[in-house]
């Protein structure tokens, strides 16, 4: 991994070294199995406190009775296992997730986690005192696993109106979370990451258990048919413009979270493109120019 782009390359290297050490020096005796948005995951933790964190963040209905060798294996340990403080662990300026592929292994380093994935086995180090690291581990690898079961994670906010789900897309800072603060009594499924999946010849939305402001696990089992997609533009006035297919496609595909386009993995690319083409052919896409006076809601229908 190119550590030069890190503000703290020494810490970056240390995280890589610890990923190797965790496999040989630690035991993962605390276990549970989850059905995470339909993906079966055996969670193997070095500490009970890590399992408690996970249980705190997911609906009880997701917890399965027994593990299975065919499941994904997520092996989690804590920075406390290595006597590292939260401050030292996150002493990196950039919030970006950097990944690298070496042979059949993928490594990922972000400010609050370090991870390694080999096939269906993932090793990750987190600070269990904060949920962000756990969610960022999931954000790193889970979108690709969800894609395998025809679900895609969209970097989006999602609001339900008249029993239909409306996705709000846009670059960071363009108002996805802000818009949800203007929702009043409308149901917000998520303000940062939401899941889109096909079911019964239509597409449905579900809040994603991937962090964000609305980390309400009681909502994670709700799903609603999709109404439309809106690309957000902050403005002094409220208006909508319908998007042509090519622009809709481009904006939709840019909102598919953490796919990490990989020239070695054509299947991921093909799946994303096929799904994107299908979605833009079925649903209307708009630019939504919105101001903070909430008048824009009349255009969301």
């Amino acid at each position: 991994m190119d550590l030069i782009s890190f503000s703290n390359p020494i810490l970056g290297q240390k995280k890589l070294d610890l990923l190797e050490k965790m496999q040989t020096d630690l035991f993962f005796n605390y276990r549970l199995t989850l059905e995470y948005h339909g993906v079966l995951v055996n969670i193997n933790a070095s500490r009970e406190s890590i399992l408690k964190l996970v249980l705190h963040l997911v609906p009880p209905s997701w917890i399965m009775d027994k593990s299975n060798d065919m499941n994904l294996n997520l092996n989690l340990c804590s920075i406390k296992d290595f006597n590292i403080s939260g401050f030292d662990w996150e002493n990196e300026e950039s919030p970006e997730c950097r990944t690298t592929q070496v042979d059949n292994q993928e490594m990922a380093i972000q400010r609050d986690f370090a991870g390694k994935m080999v096939g269906n086995t993932i090793y990750a180090i987190i600070n269990e005192d904060m949920s962000d690291g756990f969610f960022n581990v999931l954000r790193w690898f889970m979108p690709r696993k969800l894609l395998a079961i025809k679900k895609t994670v969209l970097h989006s906010s999602c609001v339900v109106i008249n029993e239909k789900a409306f996705f709000f897309l846009g670059h960071s800072g363009h108002g996805k979370s802000t818009l949800t603060t203007l929702a009043d009594d409308r149901l917000v499924l998520g303000d940062d990451m939401n899941i889109l999946y096909e079911h019964h010849n239509g597409y449905y939305a579900q809040g994603a258990a991937l962090g964000g402001l609305y980390n309400n696990k009681s909502l994670l089992n709700l799903n609603y048919p999709v109404g439309a997609f809106y690309w957000l533009c902050k403005s002094d006035e409220n208006k909508v413009e319908k998007l042509a297919s090519a622009e809709a496609y481009r904006k939709f595909i840019s909102s598919c979270a953490n796919v990490f386009w990989n020239q070695k993995d054509n299947q991921v690319e093909e799946a994303m493109m096929k799904l994107s083409l299908d979605v833009v052919s079925r649903y209307p896409f708009y630019n939504l120019y919105f101001s903070l006076n909430k008048g824009f809601w009349k255009y969301v229908k």
């Binding site: 297919s245 090519a246 496609y249 481009r250 595909i253």
Partner: peptide
């Protein structure tokens, strides 16, 4: 070899 898609006679290219 990059992924690309044609929609309504316009090409969208995805650059890895």
């Amino acid at each position: 070899k990059v992924p690309w898609q044609e929609l309504d006679e316009k090409i969208v290219i995805l650059s890895p």
